[in-house]
């Protein structure tokens, strides 16, 4: 080891820090593509484009299950009784308070469109089962009402509403 002046020390330290910093930036940048590749690829994104669903064949009191982005979507043509039940319950008493009106499109009150994935741990609830004229999840016993709201069981939240809009009175576009 040779002795070095303090000025030289500073210059050397700066060089070491600069090299280390550039190396760190390079390593971080190199990790980015390795992580980013895990996100959905272009074909998956393109396949997740909006879909149109014809509601005409669904009679009152019936429901269908369609898939959008690999998720089951329940489209339910509710009876008058189901609507009334959903609107009669005091909102404040619900675990996840939300009015039925906020969960359907105005003027299309009989149509309930929900993502059929239990908010507990992702099982698919069965329609027209349970104590609330809605959905019953067989995995851990969560029960949803005719508005898809959680009423009983371990699930914390209501069934989510997918983005959708009415293209015409008998056709919706999901996505």
């Amino acid at each position: 080891m040779t002795t070095t002046s303090s000025a030289e020390h500073t210059r050397r330290d700066f060089l070491f820090v600069a090299t280390g910093a550039v190396a760190a930036v390079g390593a971080a940048a190199a990790v980015w593509p390795l992580i980013s590749q895990m996100n959905p690829d272009a074909s998956t994104i393109a396949a997740g484009a909006p879909i149109e669903v014809d509601l005409a064949p669904i009679a009152e009191g019936q429901d269908i299950k369609v898939f959008w982005r690999g998720k089951p979507i329940y489209i339910m043509n509710r009876t008058k009784k189901q609507i009334d039940e959903a609107r009669a319950v005091p909102v404040a008493s619900l675990p996840d308070p939300q009015t039925d009106q906020a969960r359907v499109k105005e003027g299309h009150d009989q149509w309930l469109v929900v993502i059929g994935i239990c908010t507990h741990l992702g099982c698919i609830p069965i329609a027209h089962e349970g104590n609330y004229d809605g959905f019953f999840c067989p995995c851990h016993g969560s029960q949803y009402d005719s508005s898809g709201r959680i009423r009983q069981g371990p699930a914390p939240l209501n069934l989510p509403i997918p983005p959708y809009a009415f293209v015409s009175d008998s056709k919706i576009k999901i996505g």
Partner: peptide, 20 residues
């Protein structure tokens, strides 16, 4: 551009280290 800058820094760092 990054690698060339980094190579220069590594070269001078290496020189400093080996100076001892």
């Amino acid at each position: 551009v990054f690698l060339i800058i980094f190579a220069f820094l590594m070269y001078f760092t290496k020189k400093k280290v080996w100076a001892n």
